[in-house]
Design a protein around this nucleic acid. Structure first.
Lengths: 219, 219
DNA sequence: ATTAAAATTTAGACAAATCTAAAAATATTA
DNA sequence: TAATATTTTTAGATTTGTCTAAATTTTAAT
């Protein structure tokens, strides 16, 4: 089966929303895709007849096993292209998302397998997110949220929750990227902000909102 | 200005047809795009209002300066991706056209300039066709048709006229690809076929139709 | 348990790109 | 040049994906 760009975008967005809540609502998907709830309802009917989702009128919906596999295929393509853009073409990691959203819809399976091989089978994309394999298997990486870290030991940034250029630009300012080693020094109860120290830089304070978008693992 | 995939395909096809005849006809374009003449007429109106073609009802049409520039941009993207697919991903040169037709519509200018740089600014694609530069300038390569070569000196294959898998598969069988050195040994007046010798292979005979699709330059 | 609010779906319209069938213009040929 | 054939355009329909506005269903609040 082959899916249109629009269908693929819906599938991908449903997948992402499902990471937070098992069943997805019409409004949240409309919001995610910057479209209108009525358009979402229209597409849901189509995805249902194509047997990609379980859908009960007014009750929400979720990808079925088939839909999940399709979603992981799209995510695989997206993340491989992001890796390519950063590691081969030298893009900054906050500039690749939009381009990868176009490239991900190029559908040749042969292309993607060769790209994967050319890139030496990377495990994560430039934002630290794992790349699904050909069969849709994706490594689980246990994510600790920086806002909840208490210990003052070294931790390593493994991924970021938001890929908006604004967010990533700020991270760059703080000298934070995937793989960066840092320590949490102090929590401020007043606004939830935390003081951190990135190796060889002076300590700095980041807001709770930023901290919640930074995921880490222990060294 | 940004153009739809469909608009870009029309522009590209008009450009290609103009290489043979200065003004293009509705039927020939419909045939090239495997669509119906009525659809072509519809799109012509659109391209005219977008100031990409000169078009007089019933009289044919051609790209204007602006349309030409757009076409060369699309061709640049197509050929750079073909080069990438063959030289980086290891595709056979007869398998890349279809994939490049999808990739060429990814519109980021930054992407293409970085790709060009990554590929070390190639001058021709895997079929020997020149790659336009950022400004739409394309090197002119004087093409001699193999069917018309008389001298028995060494000549080098510089490009092929057809990129159909069938054609390219056959060329592979004859051990001919871009850069191949060969000699014309004999012409057969009966059917226009010619005997050639590719270095280190025994001489073989190719039909006039094949010969007409092989372009060469002197050593 | 009603009522008010919010979420979702339906109905009907629209734009892009395509098609078929018919009409109009151009080209061919006898 | 008149008749015929070919090419091109127009008119009207279709599909995909979207929208607004209205109707329906669910949820929340009194």
């Amino acid at each position: 089966m082959n899916y249109s760009v629009s269908e693929e975008n819906y599938i991908k967005s449903i997948y992402h929303l499902q990471q937070q809540t098992d069943t997805v609502t019409t409004n949240s998907l409309a919001n995610e895709l910057r479209t209108k709830p009525a358009s979402v309802t229209d597409m849901l009917k189509k995805l249902q007849t194509k047997k990609l989702i379980e859908y009960e009128k007014y009750r929400g919906f979720k990808l079925n096993a088939n839909g999940n596999k399709i979603a992981l295929g799209i995510i695989r393509r997206h993340r491989l292209w992001e890796f390519f853009l950063v590691n081969k073409l030298g893009f900054e990691w906050d500039k690749v998302h939009v381009i990868a959203e176009e490239l991900e819809h190029v559908s040749s399976a042969d292309l993607i397998e060769r790209l994967d091989s050319f890139l030496k089978f990377p495990q994560t994309d430039p934002h630290g997110d794992p790349i699904p394999d050909t069969n849709g298997k994706m490594a689980f990486i246990k994510q600790l949220n920086l806002a909840e870290i208490i210990v003052k030991k070294n931790i390593v940034v493994s991924s970021v929750g938001s890929q908006s250029p604004e967010m990533l630009e700020m991270l760059k300012h703080y000298h934070i990227s995937i793989g960066t080693s840092l320590k949490v020094i102090k929590h401020f109860a007043f606004d939830g902000s935390i003081e951190i120290k990135v190796l060889q830089y002076t300590p700095c304070i980041i807001s709770e909102q930023v901290a919640k978008n930074i995921f880490v693992h222990h060294d």
